[in-house]
């Protein structure tokens, strides 16, 4: 079956002050129906820029797509007209941002906000739209949906607001959901609740989902497949199990190692330092030749500083961009 979304060689250029550089370089990945693909990376990895590019919400002319295709069904989003994009966004593609107030209007009651989308894209009557919104609120587990319909966003907690945003994203029964750090601003108990709702919805709604996050634990809890980004490129892509069980790229391996986990090293007397990734992410406008991770890599050899490794197959479903991939399973 053809993937729902196929990103091929996507390259985004950023112009800031006197500098021009690629924020996203030659990105290629697919997402299928019923699948959650996580894009993971640290700040500056290009993960959020990728989401904005797919939605064509890049702050042009500061950031622009300068290469590649974003095939969504028979439409290339990278070159589609603004009119076509307007039809697709919020209808075929739903968006969830980190901060719910990015998507919500503070001065309009939450129910009517969601209803408006249904009336605009689906041409529903006022009464039908209201009924559908109440169903959606129920679906995303907003307690007492009939009463909460008339709440203003400020009358709700952060977790409830994020549920409204999820309802908004799902309103038109989209084919693709893009969630950019959807639980990062939430407390851990609220995060657990939202992630559970998210998993249940994923099973029932059947949309393809791109989950953008910095948090590998959130990935482990929700994603089917993972693409790890570093300095604007995918450095490793695998099923979630493959990635956590046997990461092949030293960056992925380092990231997994540096998360302080509950239960580890409980004995305070024999506590070991956290494994570190030395150094820091290079500036995108001053990337080293060869592999961008080489200066921080414990396994780097001469070739790494000379030639950039291609994203190559390691085993079925598992790709890594590394000349000397990690061999030992974790």
């Amino acid at each position: 079956m053809a993937p729902l979304l196929s990103v091929q060689g996507l390259t985004v250029e950023l112009v800031t002050g006197e500098r021009t550089f690629e924020a996203v370089s030659d990105l290629t990945f697919d997402v299928s129906r019923n699948e959650v693909l996580a894009l993971v990376g640290e700040s500056g990895s290009g993960k959020s820029m990728t989401a904005l590019a797919i939605m064509r919400l890049l702050p042009e002319p500061v950031a622009e797509i300068i290469g590649g295709r974003i095939l969504f069904g028979d439409v290339d989003l990278a070159s589609a007209s603004e009119a076509r994009l307007m039809e697709i966004r919020g209808d075929r593609i739903g968006l969830i941002f980190q901060e719910p107030m990015t998507s919500l209007n503070p001065s309009i009651r939450v129910g009517p906000q969601v209803a408006e989308v249904l009336r605009l894209h689906k041409g529903l009557s006022v009464a039908t739209a209201r009924q559908r919104v109440e169903e959606l609120f129920e679906l995303v587990r907003i307690p007492d949906p009939k009463r909460r319909y008339d709440d203003y966003p400020h009358q709700m907690s952060g977790g409830m607001r994020q549920r409204v945003v999820i309802a908004l994203a799902l309103a038109c029964d989209p084919d693709l959901l893009i969630a950019d750090e959807p639980t990062t601003a939430l407390d851990v108990t609220t995060q657990a609740q939202i992630l559970e709702t998210f998993r249940d919805l994923q099973a029932s709604v059947g949309a393809a989902t791109i989950l953008i996050t910095h948090d590998l634990a959130v990935v482990a809890e929700t994603a089917d497949r993972v693409a790890v980004m570093y300095a604007g490129r995918i450095v490793e892509e695998a099923t979630t199990r493959q990635l956590f069980d046997s990461p092949r790229h030293p960056y992925t391996n380092g990231l997994l190692g540096s998360i302080p986990q509950i239960e580890d090293a409980l004995d305070t007397a024999t506590r070991q330092p956290l494994p570190e990734i030395p150094g820091m992410v290079p500036a995108l406008w001053a990337l080293p030749t060869g592999c961008a991770f080489a200066p921080r890599c414990p396994l780097a050899r001469e070739r790494c500083t000379r030639e950039r490794p291609p994203l190559a197959g390691m085993e079925p479903g598992h790709r890594a961009a590394c000349w000397y991939p990690v061999e030992v399973a974790r």
């Binding site: 590998l216 634990a217 990935v219 482990a220 956590f244 997994l256 998360i259 509950i262």
Partner: peptide, 11 residues
């Protein structure tokens, strides 16, 4: 709180 913390372990 402890139970709500997501663990980096898909298994």
């Amino acid at each position: 709180l402890m139970e709500a913390v997501p663990r980096p372990d898909p298994a």
